[in-house]
Design a protein around this nucleic acid. Sequence first.
DNA 1: GGCGTTATGTTATACTATAACAGTCTTGAG
DNA 2: CTCAAGACTGTTATAGTATAACATAACGCC
Lengths: 173, 173
Amino acid sequence: MIPSISSPKIAFAGADHDHRRCVAAALAAATELCARRGVRLTELRRRVLELVWRSHAPQGAYAILETLRRRGRRAAPPTVYRALEFLLAQGLIHRIESASAFVGCTTPGRPHAGHFLICSDCGATAEVDDSRVGSALRDSAAEVGFRVERQTIELSGYCPDCQDESLDGEPSD
Amino acid sequence: MIPSISSPKIAFAGADHDHRRCVAAALAAATELCARRGVRLTELRRRVLELVWRSHAPQGAYAILETLRRRGRRAAPPTVYRALEFLLAQGLIHRIESASAFVGCTTPGRPHAGHFLICSDCGATAEVDDSRVGSALRDSAAEVGFRVERQTIELSGYCPDCQDESLDGEPSD
DNA sequence: GGCGTTATGTTATACTATAACAGTCTTGAG
DNA sequence: CTCAAGACTGTTATAGTATAACATAACGCC
């Protein structure tokens, strides 16, 4: 059961992908989901979601705030945090604890408890939902009588792209 | 393979345990470890470690600072953060990302990549090192070509003690 | 004892997040 | 249509977490 190097499951978006598609898909999914749930994806919330999706690297609340302002929107920290709170509640984004930042959810709609692979170099973050991890954790917790409510699983390291680059990466000084 | 309820592995300290023993053991282990490594467990660092171990619930940096000051030590935030940084580097404590707080390491000395069970009620935190979890994560990451450097795994929920109490816990309003 | 290194003190400030209250917009009942 | 209730956003202030930068003190080696 050695994972073959030639079977790269979808996870990291790759340096070349058309990111506008990611954003468009995320916004479409969010629109549809909010309509179905009868909650309001307001202009502000939509713009914040769009800014979270600006890249696959987690975005800080104040970076989002900064951009909103530059684009002419009156905004203060609560403006952003409230929108983020809504998006979190709807499962449209996730908070990356180890970075105090937020990243778009790649599979909104269905309940999931996945984990994150975060590249220390380029910041790209992949959301993975591997049942083995979940069940290993559940078993482990059950054995000591712990009832799990919420999980935070964040692995830092290097994505495929940045492992390649690290060959000629840091020049020795 | 259903884990029996009657086989509680050591994990949570239990409401009744003699906590002074925990602290004494942790300080002794730290002293020994630092001596072996030729690094200095100074008075300040020792006191900060002791305060992290004040309870099995993660302690915030500013709570530690507060206590240091009340006990007559001149201290400012960097005082505490530098000590914490040292203790982290030596593997004597861990940072709980989801709480922005620090907890003593129960098995310092050997390299380990465990995970944490954190009670949302009493705050008690157990450090667990389950090879199934580690290997599940490693496999999962390897399949997408990700090289893991550091892992943050924090499960929030209810410890055995607080599950019992929750029967008469929150009164319905 | 002098000297380089490591540790701590001190001041200021950056970054992250929320409380509290005011004003505005939306929506549905009548 | 109008108005009232609730939802959303604006605004100000402040709490909580963390680090930069520089000064001073302690340690350990020669």
